[in-house]
Amino acid sequence: MNGVHDMGGMDGFGKVAPDPHEVSFHDEWQAHSFALNRIMGSAGEWNIDVGRYWIETLPPAVYLSSSYYKKWFLRLERLCLDRGLVSEAELASGHSSGPGRPLKRKPLSGPQAGVGLTRANHDQPPRAPAAFEVGQKVRARNIHPRSHTRLPRFARGHFGTIERIQGCHTFPDAMVGKGIEQGEWLYTVVFDGRELWGPDAEDGATVSIEAFEPYLEPA
C-alpha cells in the first residue's frame, strides 16, 4: 500500500536528532508493549509481515504522531481483536471474560524466554531457479498494490543492478495478501543516486534495496 510508512525520499521531517542519553524504554509501558508483541508474535497467529501490515494500516495521522512502541501496542491490540483473541468489551473492562482459545503455537513462556531469543529463519525452498544473476541490469516494477509490499516507492520504475542473491525467502506480499508462505528469490539491487533522485542526488551516492523477484523485470 502507498502508505505514510513508506518514507524513503520524503522531505520536511527535519534533522536527525541523536540522543547521547538514549535508553531502550522511556516508560514501563513501552517495555511491556515490546515484550507483549514478542510473546504474541510467537504464537503463530500472524507472522512478521502481517504484523508490519497492521502498523502500516494505522491511519496516517496516527502513524505519524504515535511513538514507536505506541504503534506496536496499537498493532497488537488491533490484531488481537481481529483474530478474536480479545473482545472490545474485555478491553473496556480490563479483564478477561472467559478462557482463551487454543493458539496455533505455544507462545514464548518461562523465566528463560528472553535468553537466546533470536530472529526467525525466513528461508523457503525455491520453486524455480533464480531468474536474475549478479551483475544483471533490472528495473523495479512500477507497481502500486493496495495490500502489503516491501518494494519502496522511491525505487519503483527505476533501473538498477543485481549485486547479490540473498537466497529464497518468504514473500511478504503473498503472506499478507493470500495468507500463504510462498518462497521467492531475494536480491540486493543497487541503484545510482542520480537514477533515483535525478539532479538532486548527492554525488557518488548509491542505494540498494532488498528486492523479491516479483518486484523486478529485466531491463
Binding site: 509501558w29 517495555a31 523465566p111
Partner: peptide, 26 residues
Amino acid sequence: QLRVRALETILTEKGYVDPAALDSII
C-alpha cells in the same frame, strides 16, 4: 499505561502471556 495494562491483563488471564516470559524478554 492503562491501555497496555488492560491488554496485558486480559492476555495473561487467558493464559496466552506468561508474566515470567515477559520479564525475561524485557
